[in-house]
Design a protein around this nucleic acid. Structure first.
Lengths: 135, 135
DNA sequence: CTATATCCTACTTATTCACTAGGAATTTCC
DNA sequence: GGAAATTCCTAGTGAATAAGTAGGATATAG
């Protein structure tokens, strides 16, 4: 069980934006340089953050990205979920929520509650940590 | 963040063994059939469980596997770790424990504590759930 | 002695991750 | 108006890992 770079880099992007809030739009290039990451790769991630309405973009020269809310109003859980750095340990529970779990509830899914508990526990934790807690 | 089939199947094996404790050695074949899983694949997993001293094997005809301890003495966390269904969300923290984290503590690792907290939280949870809680 | 199992090593295939590539659209600044 | 900077959009690719296969050796009950 591990978070991917998608999740980690996305949190880094958001932390970076928090730290440079006062400077107007922050370009992805500057973020990539500060953390020595691929700008092209971050582009994909921040696209998701924008779609999730966590940042807004300013196009053109001197453009960049700006947080949509204050750092103390953005939970890490939102960031992770927006880039689909899936927080669910296994697929089964996902389906369970919509009551379409395909596995035999008596046999295979004796362990179902386990994964649900793990998922909920992680979600609860990351939803209780805000960007402002990280800077 | 997800558990792999290694972790899930391993827990299933152990739950199955718990349920059939009274019947003497339980063959991998019977477990594979009950859960419709590949016996050959489970073989690899139970090898790890045996090495971790969570089960013992009885070779030959009528052989199989038996739990080494009572279900209320075997935590899920032990099972997951024994098959290396890594519980650490990212590598960085792993290294942190041995004080050899390679990333810049001021920049990249502002988020370090976050992943440590997630990891610890998950570990704490799976270590508090025993096989007996699942059956 | 045969059938049933575990045990051991290696190989293969499928999937996902991480990253790259090319170029279009938008905006600032001179 | 033009050049530079920057976001936006759609694909493609290489490497790693996960998941599952394969072949056969070893052990034991009956």
């Amino acid at each position: 069980m591990k978070f991917t770079t998608r999740g980690r880099y996305s949190v880094q992007i958001m932390v970076d934006l928090s730290q440079h809030m006062s400077e107007g739009p922050v370009s992805l290039k500057s973020i990539a340089e500060r953390h020595d990451l691929s700008e092209r790769y971050l582009e994909q991630l921040i696209t998701e953050l924008r779609k999730a309405d966590l940042v807004r973009s300013v196009r053109g020269a001197q453009g960049g990205y700006i947080l949509q809310r204050e750092p103390d109003q953005i939970a890490v859980g939102e960031i992770l979920r927006s880039v689909a750095a899936s927080i669910a340990p296994v697929d089964c529970e996902h389906q369970t929520e919509t009551l379409s779990c395909s596995c035999d509830p008596d046999e295979q899914c004796l362990t179902r509650d386990l994964w649900i508990r793990v998922r909920d526990s992680v979600n609860e934790l990351v939803d209780s940590i805000y960007l402002s807690d990280l800077i």
